[in-house]
Design a protein around this nucleic acid. Structure first.
Lengths: 106, 106
DNA sequence: CTAATAGATCAATGAATCTTGATGCATAAA
DNA sequence: TTTATGCATCAAGATTCATTGATCTATTAG
């Protein structure tokens, strides 16, 4: 198991940050239907090209998506590993590893 | 089922934004072990009082945690509903509802 | 009542983000 | 080679965020 990311607040924050924007969530919502190029996203999402490019970069830097060049088009798609990582992260927010706090306060 | 939040990018972004900060993730990491007051968090997290208060407010406004007053102490704990909501959100990033895109690009 | 304590809130500063329009760089068509 | 297209990147401005120290409020102890 990887496990390292779950214990790393900065990495976790980076991943959650990538998801903390409506435009980026809409991008992911499109990409989950399959690979897609920027020009198509521009159509679907009513967003300017440089704006999309900016958000795609955030998602890519965080590892949420991967890209592939084909001729002059860039195809983006969701990175399945990142989704697994997300699952781990959300799980790690739940598990109580130690026994419930025994002492009261202060 | 609720379902509404999953389809709402702003709400989803708010929830993810609350998780997009190392300090807040550390707070949640403490709270998942059980209810905790601010003074105890201050000790454990090496963080100033107003800083903690700020982040606790962000988490509370997003619905990630709930508070309870007891005397002059405020006890915070994780909101289980929000964890379920998170699960839904992460799931919604995976499911491909339509068939894979048939057309090529542009 | 007065003093002390827990914690929220405010004000100010600096850092990070997002948006827009312009420019640059490939690749492909003519 | 010239021209057009797809997209990344840059620069500037606006907005949001995070941190710190100060102040305010509620509660409890003396």
């Amino acid at each position: 198991m990887k496990g390292s990311t779950v214990r790393n607040p900065s990495r976790a924050a980076e991943l959650f940050h990538a998801l903390a924007d409506p435009t980026r969530l809409e991008i992911l919502d499109e990409l989950k239907e399959g690979e897609c190029c920027v020009c198509e996203l521009t159509d679907r999402l009513q967003a300017g090209q440089s704006r999309l490019s900016f958000h795609l970069k955030v998602l890519k830097d965080a590892g949420m998506i991967v890209d592939r060049r084909e001729g002059r088009w860039m195809y983006y798609s969701v990175n399945a590993d990142a989704l697994a990582e997300l699952d781990d992260l959300v799980d790690s927010l739940k598990q109580a590893k130690r026994a419930r706090r025994a002492t009261g306060c202060c």
